[in-house]
Write a protein that binds this DNA or RNA. Structure first.
Lengths: 336, 336
DNA sequence: CTGTTAGCGCATTCAG
DNA sequence: CTGAATGCGCTAACAG
């Protein structure tokens, strides 16, 4: 059976489709009786407006597209949660899509959203400004998260420098002298920034100490591998400053497996403060991921409904705060 | 500047819009040269088809709507992850929406998806068959997850009975004699089923022992509260069989805080096997959440593209397997 | 092979 | 206050 359309309602209420449209959308200029007849007919028929047709006519879909590197892990799900909150509060919908590392596919994914959403929230830490600019559809307003600057789009960034600086300061203050940075991919903007921030922080808080870095890729396995590599190398170290929580976790478990006392011999710190971190008592840098996602939505919707006021396009930094937990607690006296 | 439409492309390639449509959609009956001219024009103009208009014309959106109780927590994000995988593999998009407990709002959320998606995946553990039937739009094919039977929609259910039975059998086999069930809400179908399964399993594996149940609501806090209540009551117990992992976690942490030895004095088990469970070494029942989400998508898309072959509408049970970890390990000898 | 035409379902001009 | 007509952008019949 064909779905009931506005015409069915019009016929049953014995008015024109225009009146049905006006009545149902709460326009002022509708006779009360007409409005009632329409409402009754719609109810009787179980009429539900066709959002697609509505969108085409209004040139407004009330949905926003979200393009993320991938949907796995607590990091992303926290962000999506924040987006969802703001989005439903404003009557918008969320259309998900994950962006493949390949710029070509990324562009395809974004283009496939044209006519389906009013705007885009894109998280593309692995694309540079040029790649991003090429992939972004020209006629879709976008808000970027953790992406390269210089695309002209509003941008939300994590304050990596402040976060890493706080970590290193904390370690230095609690007596650590030989920290090693467990880095994320160089191709990832956050990986790159945190690595640079580490070097800067070392110079500030432990001048003279060597800046040691082990390569990683943000995965738990990378954390374990890094520990193995460090033990093989033999150079002593008393702290691992991981570029994110999952690597910190991998390192932490590997250290404990090997019988190393954490935090006694080695301190371990992460970044992001995913929910998991609290359970494992991991010292880390807290980013309010829910807030980050929410802000992106708010900023995009403001831009969408903005009556011409242009968004400054400026990068907005979201805070990063040190959370000290068990993996970096001051070593208690070891000697009896 | 107006976005470029199919007409702009037609004008530039000096052909009709019909030819552009045919060429771009890879229809056979297009002259090679025409096809090339169209492709060139489209590329030059940076033309991207308007998905909304396309949907209206084709009566097919290539998106599927997902309605979940809420998007928080690992439980849901794992499911969404599975959906995303199958969905992108098939060229579909995912439109998220969270369902409020209120049946009225739930109905609204689902209706707002009409004309926006081709079908729905609904997870509504708290609605009964009647409520669900009332909320589901009549013209949108739907697949249900963890919902009441009898709506006529294909249904995916977790095998709660098998899972709980395995837990109780394991506890009985390892010497536990006084387990307590930490239940989910009675209004939640999984909460109800697991509670009933617990009683049945007790009768089978520990005949004669009392069936003890403490009320909870699937939250971590409920786990802590339950432990407090049990200690206050004073009745001895040697195992907590929680209806989900988060409650098990809450109970576990509360027990340890109180100095109770887990698993020495009390064993703790969960249900779901969220990623967190592995890190905390929680014995639990593993459900392949990713697979669950994926199956739902596959089943829905099959139904959407099914040439009339009616889905049996039968409930499909997804497996649940016991995972023994540290919180229920056989107590090692306590005496020296 | 190609162009013309008629919708998809709805909101909105513009006349009455 | 209401109805008839037009168009959103695209695809699919139907003729050429």
């Amino acid at each position: 059976m064909r779905a009931t359309t506005i015409r069915d309602v019009a016929r049953r209420a014995d008015v024109s489709v225009a009146s049905v449209s006006r009545a149902l959308n709460g326009h002022a200029n509708v006779h009360p009786e007409t409005r009632a007849r329409v409402a009754a007919a719609a109810a009787a028929l179980g009429y539900v407006p066709h959002a697609g047709a509505r969108s085409l006519s209004l040139a407004r879909t009330h949905s926003i597209g979200v393009v993320l590197p991938d949907l796995y892990g607590e990091f992303f799900s926290e962000i999506v949660r924040g987006m969802d909150r703001e989005t439903t509060a404003r009557g918008y919908h969320l259309l998900l899509s994950n962006m493949h590392a390949d710029a070509e596919l990324a562009a395809l994914a974004m283009r496939s959203m044209r006519g389906r959403v009013d705007g885009l929230i894109v998280m593309a830490p692995q694309l540079d400004a040029a790649g991003l600019a090429a992939a972004l559809p020209r006629d879709l307003p976008a808000v970027l998260i953790n992406a390269a600057a210089g695309t002209g789009c509003p941008l939300l960034r994590i304050d990596n420098a402040t976060g890493i600086d706080a970590v290193v300061a904390h370690l230095a203050a609690t007596g650590r002298r030989a920290p090693v940075h467990l880095a994320g991919q160089e191709a990832n903007i956050d990986g790159r920034e945190r690595r640079e921030a580490f070097a800067a922080a070392m110079a500030r808080h432990l001048p003279g100490a060597p800046v040691r870095v082990v390569e990683g890729d943000f995965s738990e396995e990378a954390g374990a591998r890094a520990v193995a590599a460090l033990r093989a190398a033999g150079d002593p170290f008393d702290a691992i400053v991981a570029a994110n929580d999952m690597m910190a976790l991998g390192a932490l478990l590997a250290l404990r497996d090997a019988g190393t006392d954490v935090p006694g011999e080695v301190a371990v710190t992460g970044f992001d403060d995913v929910p998991l971190a609290r359970y494992l008592s991991l010292t880390t840098v807290r980013i309010d991921l829910v807030e980050l996602g929410g802000r992106a939505v708010v900023r995009l919707i403001e831009r969408l409904s903005g009556s011409g006021e242009v968004d400054s396009g400026e990068a907005e930094l979201v805070g990063a705060a040190l959370i000290v937990r068990g993996t970096s607690a001051v070593a208690t006296e070891t000697r009896t």
